[in-house]
C-alpha cells in the first residue's frame, strides 16, 4: 500500500512493500510448517517399534534407494538455487532452464518414493498394518505430497513466466517457490536421518 517506499534497486522480489510482506508471511508459513512436521516426527518417534505383525523397518529399508532419493532432492535444491541466481541476473532463459531441471529431479524423487511405497506394500507393510507403519507412511507421504504440490506450483509459475516475463510479481512468486523448495529439502534431511538411517540401525 502507498505510504511505504518503493525501492528501485536491490533484488526484484524485495522492491515493493507488498513484496517484503509476502516474503515475511511466507517465512512465517514455513514456521508453521516446521511445527507441522515436528508434530509428525514426534508421532513417528513415539510409535517407533510398534510394528505389530508387520515386517520391521530393518527388514525393508534399503540404503541405495534412500541414498538415491537424497541425492536427487539435494541436487534439485542446488539447481533451484542456481535458478534463483539466474533470476537475479535477469536471465529469464537461465531461470526457466534451471527451474525445469529442478522439476525433473523432483519428479525423479517422487517416482522413487512411489516405487518405494508400492514395494513395501507388497512386502506386507501398508498404512493399515500397524501404528509404526501408519506413522511412516503419513510422515514420508506428507513430505511427498508437499513435493507434488511444489511441482504443480512450479509448472504454474513456468507458464506465468513464459506469459509475462520477469517482473516484480513473477520474481517474487519464483523466489517464494524457491524458499519452499529448499524447505522441503531441509525436511528431507531430517527424514533421511531419523527415519532411514536410524530405522536401518535400530
Amino acid at each position: 500500500m502507498s505510504g511505504h517506499s518503493e525501492l528501485t534497486t536491490g533484488p526484484l522480489e524485495y522492491r515493493s512493500h507488498e513484496d517484503r510482506m509476502t516474503v515475511l508471511g511466507f517465512w512465517l508459513f514455513l514456521g508453521a510448517e516446521i511445527a507441522l512436521f515436528a508434530t509428525l516426527f514426534a508421532t513417528y518417534a513415539v510409535l517407533f517399534g510398534r510394528t505389530a505383525d508387520a515386517p520391521t523397518p530393518q527388514e525393508l529399508f534399503e540404503m541405495p534407494m534412500a541414498l538415491t532419493m537424497t541425492f536427487l532432492l539435494l541436487t534439485s535444491s542446488f539447481t533451484c538455487g542456481i535458478a534463483i541466481h539466474e533470476m537475479r541476473r535477469g536471465s529469464l532463459k537461465g531461470l526457466l532452464t534451471w527451474l525445469i531441471i529442478t522439476l525433473a529431479l523432483g519428479l525423479g524423487f517422487l517416482g522413487f518414493e512411489i516405487y518405494e511405497f508400492v514395494h513395501y506394500a507388497h512386502e506386507g507393510a501398508t498404512l493399515q498394518s500397524s501404528a509404526y507403519w501408519s506413522s511412516f507412511f503419513v510422515l514420508t507421504g506428507t513430505h511427498g505430497a508437499h513435493v507434488t504440490l511444489g511441482i504443480c506450483w512450479a509448472v504454474l509459475l513456468i507458464i506465468q513466466l513464459k506469459k509475462r516475463g520477469l517482473n516484480q510479481m513473477t520474481a517474487r512468486k519464483t523466489f517464494v517457490l524457491g524458499l519452499y523448495w529448499h524447505f522441503l529439502d531441509v525436511i528431507w534431511i531430517f527424514l533421511f536421518t531419523s527415519v532411514y538411517l536410524i530405522g536401518m540401525v535400530v
Binding site: 511445527a35 508434530t39 508421532t43 498404512l127 493399515q128 498394518s129 500397524s130
Partner: peptide, 30 residues
C-alpha cells in the same frame, strides 16, 4: 501460528484412522 499446525496434524491422523484404516490412535495394531 505455532499451535494450530499441531491440531491440523492430530485431526488429520484421526481422520486417516477413521476413513483410511491407519492405526495411530486405535486399540488394534499397537
Amino acid at each position: 501460528t505455532f499451535a494450530f499446525p499441531i491440531l491440523t496434524v492430530a485431526l488429520a491422523l484421526m481422520t486417516i484412522d477413521r476413513i483410511f484404516g491407519s492405526q495411530f490412535f486405535t486399540l488394534t495394531g499397537e
